[in-house]
Design a protein around this nucleic acid. Structure first.
Lengths: 198, 198
DNA sequence: TTTACAAATGTTAGAGACTAACATTTAACC
DNA sequence: GGTTAAATGTTAGTCTCTAACATTTGTAAA
């Protein structure tokens, strides 16, 4: 039971290395498989598509539980917002450079971004289910989950595409902006005259 | 200059008809091309991929202008929310059955949903640009746009996946839930036992 | 050790999406 | 009617991904 995971890891590492060096489109599955010392067929036994080797997201259950634990007196969006905040606090900050490289690759390629949204939709379903379990309509649950995850994913893509700051800071920013009383906010808003640049 | 658009339309109609009947995966580009009286190569001259024949979205400029027109004293999310509401009011309700068939097909297939998110990201960029033009930071702009479009797309997918109600009603619901004062909502009588807060 | 069984991988053949390069037809305009 | 450019056809090929079947490798009991 250990060899499968080992091959899987080797494939992921080979993929990230090759793709980071030559780009996603210029890297074939054959090359990745060969670099991992394995046959192309074996690649697809571990990952259903070439894109999937870069998209590994096992966080959904934690998030679902955290949302379900929020007090039902709150508005759906607020429950999702707090649930995501608590789930994030429980997860380890992925300071590994590998994660950032992966996110950067994904953020820079349309097809990969698209697949990532599909992962997000799975998370959305989990959250919506947690809300529905306490009487929220399906439409409202999907909207609330969609809004919060839309904000979160935007922060993630920005982290991947632009330098500076940690992922945690951006997640925090996204959650803050979703807060019901999010009018004040220090530095950036309230500018009307010149266009502040960054 | 009219023949190209004509062929394009024939390809779209043939695609929707065939795919609605036999499913996306069971319909090949060859079949679509043949039904449109054209060569497979010509298909790809009109649409960069098989998926794109179902995804036609020329609304972005209207939305960007509407967001840009909002008062700069409002919080970013609120500006996006109002801008989207006004843009929607200016657009014709797509009561055509064709639109619903297309949305239903897209909502029901992972690969198509994923491509749709990529379209949404384009809209997000337009909105974020409108916000940034008045001093909002890039991160804040992307988050605000991402949150609102996440809510909106959830409403759209729900409309495609489930019967009942018009698209306009669901859009309205999504925008309402994003409103700053959206606390009320039905069964809010429960006591706050272990009041969790930040 | 040997045998047995299952997990993991290899091999072959092929479908289908998509591209490049070049040839041909069709449309529009003078 | 002839000229030019847009639109389409043809051919050949690469790459992703799948199906069916064969082979190796790991592991545990006989």
């Amino acid at each position: 039971m250990g060899k499968k995971a080992q091959t899987r890891t080797r494939l992921q590492e080979a993929a990230v290395t090759l793709i980071a060096a030559h780009g996603y489109d210029n890297t074939t599955v054959d090359q990745i498989a060969e670099a991992a010392g394995v046959t192309p067929m074996t690649f697809f036994r571990h990952f259903p598509s070439k894109a999937e080797v870069l998209l590994d997201d096992p966080y959904d259950p934690v998030i679902g539980d955290a949302v379900a634990a929020q007090p039902k007196s709150l508005a759906p969006i607020e429950r999702v917002r707090r649930g995501l905040g608590e789930a994030w606090a429980d997860l380890p900050e992925p300071d590994h450079e590998l994660t950032r490289v992966r996110v950067r690759i994904v953020a820079g390629h349309p097809l990969l971004r698209a697949r990532m949204w599909e992962n997000t939709l799975e998370t959305q379903r989990v959250i919506a289910e947690a809300l529905r379990a306490s009487g929220v309509s399906r439409l409202d649950a999907e909207i609330a989950a969609g809004a919060c995850l839309g904000a979160l994913n935007s922060a993630l893509l920005d982290w991947g595409a632009n330098q500076g700051g940690t992922l945690g800071e951006r997640i925090q920013r996204a959650l803050d902006m979703l807060a019901p009383e999010s009018t004040p906010l220090a530095e950036s808003t309230t500018a009307e005259g010149g266009s502040t640049d960054d």
